[in-house]
Simulated assay, not measured.
Amino acid sequence: MFNLSEIVAQIPINVYVLVGCLVAGWLMKKFLPTDNKFIPLAMVILGAIVYLLLEGFSVENIIIGAFTGAASTGLHQVFKQYIEGKDLASTNGDGSKAEDFEADPIEERSDK
């Protein structure tokens, strides 16, 4: 059988880099006049740089750091949705209700 704790233990994410990127992204959002669409890219770059400084230079460390920075962006979105009380399963990702839209709109055809 699969042991989830062993699988999670093999994921090479540095918690300090994750939390640092999460805080840096929040600070950018609150205090810098930056367009929000650039924050995830900045977190990927910051995560890669910080992880390189902690673990040393290698291509693998660049990739791990970049994924850690991206994970901080996703973690921020999960916290944000949770705090705002939005049910992620019942929304379309933009805050609108899922039932407001048809899953597969079919145009009515007239066979006359």
Rank of each mutant, 00 (worst) to 15 (best):
M1Y: 04
F2V: 15
F2E: 15
F2I: 15
N3K: 08
N3H: 07
L4E: 07
S5V: 15
E6I: 02
E6P: 05
E6K: 14
I7V: 14
V8P: 00
V8D: 02
A9I: 07
A9S: 13
P12E: 08
I13E: 06
N14P: 06
N14K: 05
V15Q: 08
G20W: 10
G20Y: 11
C21M: 08
L22S: 12
L22V: 07
V23C: 02
V23D: 00
G25C: 00
L27R: 03
L27M: 15
M28F: 06
M28T: 03
K30G: 04
F31S: 13
F31Y: 15
F31V: 12
L32V: 04
L32P: 02
P33A: 07
T34I: 11
D35R: 02
D35L: 01
D35Q: 09
D35N: 14
N36F: 10
K37L: 05
F38A: 01
P40C: 10
P40N: 10
L41I: 09
A42V: 01
A42R: 00
V44H: 01
V44G: 12
I45D: 04
I45G: 02
I45S: 01
L46E: 07
L46Y: 12
A48Q: 03
V50D: 08
Y51N: 15
Y51S: 09
L53V: 07
L53Q: 06
L53Y: 04
L54T: 04
E55L: 07
G56L: 06
G56C: 11
S58T: 07
E60L: 12
N61T: 03
I62T: 06
I62S: 04
I62N: 05
I63K: 11
I64Y: 08
A66R: 04
A66Y: 00
T68K: 04
T68Y: 06
T68G: 03
A70T: 03
A70G: 11
S72W: 01
T73Q: 06
G74Y: 09
L75S: 06
H76A: 14
H76D: 13
Q81L: 10
I83E: 02
E84Q: 14
G85Q: 07
G85N: 05
G85P: 10
D87F: 14
L88T: 13
L88S: 13
N92Y: 12
N92M: 13
G93T: 09
D94K: 12
K97F: 12
A98V: 14
A98M: 13
D100A: 01
F101K: 09
F101N: 10
E102G: 00
D104T: 11
D104V: 14
D104M: 06
P105F: 08
E108K: 13
R109A: 13
D111V: 11
K112R: 07
K112W: 01
